[in-house]
Design a protein around this nucleic acid. Structure first.
Lengths: 358, 358
DNA sequence: TTTAGCAGTCATAAGATGGGAGTGCCAGGA
DNA sequence: TCCTGGCACTCCCATCTTATGACTGCTAAA
């Protein structure tokens, strides 16, 4: 039918959107995000000033559907945006938003009172964003592999054991217990620490995972046992077990009509708890310049194709080290969440920059 | 409330339970836990060998209801256990269970491969128990206040800043960044560390939060600035922000019929994310000898009166330091979960005992 | 004390019905 | 060529009704 009308144009999924179509698409997204109800032609003419009749809107909407921007849940329902519809909206149609003064103040206050320790900051930021966004917030913490080695301190704890504290470029201390020979003294450990600091300072943790620490130390006159223990400590510290991800706000999902279906809810909850999938989802975003959005199937996982994710990288000093993300239903207020993510990330960057005079 | 456990029994709700009534109550609990359906008199006579007719069971059940052990969701439904019914079942009627060989092996293997660092172990244990129990597992980590001070190491990081690493009796390292005066050298910090170790070794962290470190250090000839910074570090380390609680397995709640109601589910999810309530719930259990159960309203919170919690304390060395807990619907397999909690706690104790030759 | 039988209760599931929101299409008008 | 009013049609959804069946408590007899 209408399919025959347009086939040539409709094929590549990016037919030109004249101004009226663009406005209609944007309005449908806006209205659907606000109400969670499929949007009909009459609703549009009544609530928005379009200057044409509902019949005209119907025709336009039919074309927008044929072009892949809208879909109809069932024959006699209104339209809802498709992934492509949201995508076009986000990339080209929506009005960027900025944080309200209130929100900006809240974020500022929160960071002013925040701890200086990385783990705490991540935990707290996640909580803050979960709360403000009313969606699920999560963060990828700096991966150890990309950090550089800054300092190691071997601490004598008892006659048999010691603790290695390794400080990286982002100020994180990784602790590893180790055993040493019985004749080792606290002084030995201090000398050894100094030696290690001189030799390896500035290297990336990735390199240190492979380095032959044992040989180096043996040459410097330290016992074989101790050297091997220290090498173990290095290895353990370098190999980040998995990038830490905190998350907060899962409860908000229940407020969304799209998750009244318990199966959908459960698959999303599982993904959140697993963490690994979350990580894969947004790991790439660390290379982005600013905020980014992934919509529905773009996430590449059937289990969360009902969701969208807003990501924004954050920095420590001048190195980008992690990602802040907000996940929610596809029907999310993109402009607002992008503003929130960006704003928070900026505060976070500043917070870490302040800390970076370390 | 029932905090004192036993008086509730003595009061109005404890008519003598003859053997047959006891058996019926136990069977109702067993059947209801298995099927999630109210249990009727006919079901009982058909599936269990009671030797009497359903009419007799009906009479008995009516009396059990009058005595407060059973309740009827509505007139023409079967019976389900009340809090008191579950309580009696757990205290006096149920058959204790032991772990299956398979489960025991799984737990053993998991701990064999486990890290030696406290945080990791807690995370991993929570995950394991959440998975095996098909319920929500969570843990209270050792509170810093009760730990004793073991070692502090001040590390020189840059001309203005240093890192204080404080090791406690349970082997946890707390890190705090601090600023020091410009003329301070790494050697100064080492000397200062030694001084602090000698002076404060063995004290509890609680004491250290109040101790006048500044004065002590000034007397020993260290600069005012540095002394104050170190005092700040001490304070920060002593004041545990809140006892860490990891949790895992929230997704399993969705499988339970009692949480099909989204409001109930949401209040439980919120409690889990808040953590504070969870903490209050089980903090007392740290003084228990073995596994313990809190049922429904005994938890003291309306929001989770649909839930029960199994708790068991765990040790580090010879000190009890935390609690492992499993939360689920009141209709939970108590004997199994108690076995699982106990078994895991034992493995955990052993794991930490091994580590305690530190 | 137990049991069979019976009348009564009530949640639940399964049709039946009507309303309403929304569509596509067409023919006439600018 | 584009827009619009009108109309027939589709189909979801809320509401109501009805039937079913799993229970119960009670009574009277064994």
């Amino acid at each position: 039918m209408t399919a025959k009308d347009k086939p040539a144009k409709a094929a590549p999924l990016a037919p030109p959107l004249d101004q009226r179509k663009a406005f209609i698409l944007a309005t449908v997204v806006y209205e659907y995000v606000a109400t969670a109800e499929p949007v009909g032609s009459q609703t549009l003419t009544q609530k928005y000033n379009l200057g044409v009749s509902s019949a005209t809107i119907r025709n336009e909407m039919a074309e927008l559907e044929a072009a892949g921007y809208l879909v109809q849940p069932h024959t006699s329902a209104g339209r809802i945006p498709s992934d492509a519809g949201y995508r076009t909206y986000v990339d080209r149609l929506m009005q960027p938003e900025t944080l309200t003064n209130e929100e900006a103040k809240r974020i500022r206050d929160e960071f002013r009172a925040a701890s200086r320790e990385l783990d705490d900051v991540i935990e707290q930021t996640t909580r803050l964003v979960g709360e403000l966004s009313h969606n699920v917030a999560f963060m990828i913490a700096p991966s150890r592999e990309t950090q550089t080695f800054r300092h190691i301190q071997l601490i004598w704890l008892s006659e048999r054991t010691g603790l290695a504290i390794l400080v990286t470029s982002v100020g994180v201390a990784v602790q590893t217990h180790f055993e040493h020979g019985e004749q080792v003294t606290a002084d030995d450990l201090t000398r050894l620490s100094n030696r290690l600091n001189v030799t390896f300072g500035g290297r990336t943790m990735r390199e240190l995972g492979d380095v032959e620490v044992t040989a180096v130390l043996r040459d410097a006159g330290f016992g074989e046992d101790l050297a091997r223990a220290v090498e173990g400590a290095f290895r353990a510290a370098a190999r980040s077990p998995e990038p830490i991800v905190a998350s907060s706000g899962a409860q908000h999902l229940l407020d969304q009509p799209e998750f009244q279906d318990l199966r959908k809810l459960q698959s999303v909850l599982r993904i959140i708890e697993e963490q690994k999938t979350l990580y894969d989802l947004v790991a790439n975003s660390i290379n982005d310049e600013g905020p980014n959005v992934k919509i529905g199937r773009e996430l590449g996982s059937d289990e969360i194709m009902e969701c969208s994710v807003v990501t924004v990288p954050y920095r420590f000093g001048d190195q980008t080290v992690g990602v802040l993300a907000i996940m929610g239903p596809r029907r999310m207020p993109y402009a607002r969440l992008m503003a929130l993510a960006s704003g928070t990330a900026q505060s976070l960057n500043r917070h870490f920059a302040d800390a970076d005079h370390r």
